[in-house]
């Protein structure tokens, strides 16, 4: 459109560079790992000429599900971070900061630790236990409601963050009580889950994971108008014709689904939700969620893929927990933002 009314200088980043980078990182994610698979072989598999059963097995059973999981998890966490930051008008909001991750953790802990022996959370190939998924969602949703209730009471953003952190502490203390009375092997499973990983979703899990996350991401696009209005604060939003109560519930619902399902499947992933929206704002120079939501999704997917690649530490026999990588890259981003851009939100 000729009319450059919405100043959006870096359209090309959104349209070409990010999808291009995602594609490249996807291929690298499939190729690199403890077993290196040459890109030639991947191409052979796509064209159906491959006869290397080992490679085919690794790619189909492990690398592709992991790549898809990383993509969707990155998008979902980043979008839920963006939505939370806009809704609470707080640049430091994010699923992990506001205690939503810990709410989901509590749910998962209740199921894995309390109902001992029924199933093991990190075992490959098992369909993710529906009850643990549901528990994660309920835990996250409950914490969101608590935070929202507090947000209505305290207008001060810093206070809200502190409350979020405290709620996080309460849930983690409950989790540790649960751990104390649990069986060894369940605790191990829970700890492994808590380190975070994109590799715990089997194809069986995917049947649930992909549709839920995709519909959550799709639904978030429906919040564009409300989020743009909420940029100005709730009263202005209402004066602009927004039914604040309904849309707030809708927004919480989406965020809880996205954050909790990712947390249930991949463990609590730190910093992606907090840092990616800021990167998107910096790159897009926009506050319009029509631009920001897709931008955040793509940036989130790209960075999750990158982190996953780094966590695998190609050319070595070791792997890192994904949380270690996301924190190492995420925390400096947040510090940079605080130092550089004071008025970002």
């Amino acid at each position: 459109m000729r009319n450059n009314i919405h100043l959006y200088r870096n359209k090309y980043i959104l349209l070409f560079i990010l999808p291009g980078a995602i594609l490249i990182f996807m291929i690298l994610n499939i190729s690199f790992g403890s077993v290196h698979i040459p890109i030639r072989e991947i191409w052979k598999l796509i064209t159906g000429e491959s006869n290397n059963i080992i490679y085919t097995n690794i790619i189909i059973k492990s690398r592709i599900p992991q790549t898809i999981t990383a993509c969707l998890a990155g998008s979902a966490l980043a979008v839920s971070g963006l939505i939370l930051q806009t809704m609470f008008k707080n640049p430091l909001a994010g699923p992990s900061v506001l205690g939503i991750n810990s709410g989901a953790s509590l749910g998962v802990a209740l199921v894995t630790l309390f109902f001992t022996g029924t199933y093991q959370i990190s075992s490959h190939g098992n369909m993710m236990h529906l009850s643990s998924l549901l528990a994660a969602f309920l835990g996250a949703f409950l914490i969101m409601l608590v935070i929202l209730f507090m947000a209505a009471k305290v207008k001060n953003n810093a206070m809200l963050l502190i409350i979020g952190l405290m709620v996080g502490y309460i849930t983690s203390s409950l989790v540790s009580v649960l751990k104390y009375y649990s069986m060894q092997e369940n605790i191990h499973a829970f700890v492994m889950w808590g380190l975070g990983s994109f590799s715990n979703t089997s194809w069986l899990d995917m049947r649930l994971f992909i549709p839920i996350i995709l519909s959550g991401l799709l639904l978030s696009l429906f919040a564009v108008k409300s989020l743009n209005m909420l940029n100005l604060g709730e009263r202005y939003a209402q004066n602009l014709g927004l039914n604040v109560k309904t849309s707030r519930f809708f927004i919480i619902f989406i965020t809880s689904i996205l954050a909790s399902v990712i947390t249930a499947f991949c463990g609590p992933i730190a910093f992606l939700g907090l840092a990616v929206p800021h990167i998107s704002r910096l790159l897009s120079h926009s506050t319009d969620h029509k631009v920001l939501i897709p931008h955040t999704m793509l940036t989130g997917a790209m960075l999750a893929l990158l982190c996953n690649l780094l966590a695998r530490m190609p050319w070595t026999d070791y792997t890192l927990p994904i949380n270690a990588v996301t924190s190492i890259f995420g925390a400096p981003v947040v510090i940079y933002i605080i130092l550089k851009k004071r008025n970002l939100l």
Binding site: I5, H6, L7, T86, K89, F222, V224, K225, N228, M229, N231, L232, G233, R235, Y236, N239, L240, G241, R281, S286, T287, D288, K290, K341, N343, L344, L345
Partner: peptide, 29 residues
């Protein structure tokens, strides 16, 4: 309505003024 609270959230002039048209826009604004 013009209130005392001011949340500009890193917005540009034209973005904020465009928000004034939101009561007349459709679902995707």
């Amino acid at each position: 309505l013009v209130l005392t609270e001011r949340n500009f959230s890193g917005m540009r002039v034209i973005d904020l003024v465009s928000l004034g048209r939101y009561p007349y826009t459709g679902f995707f604004a």
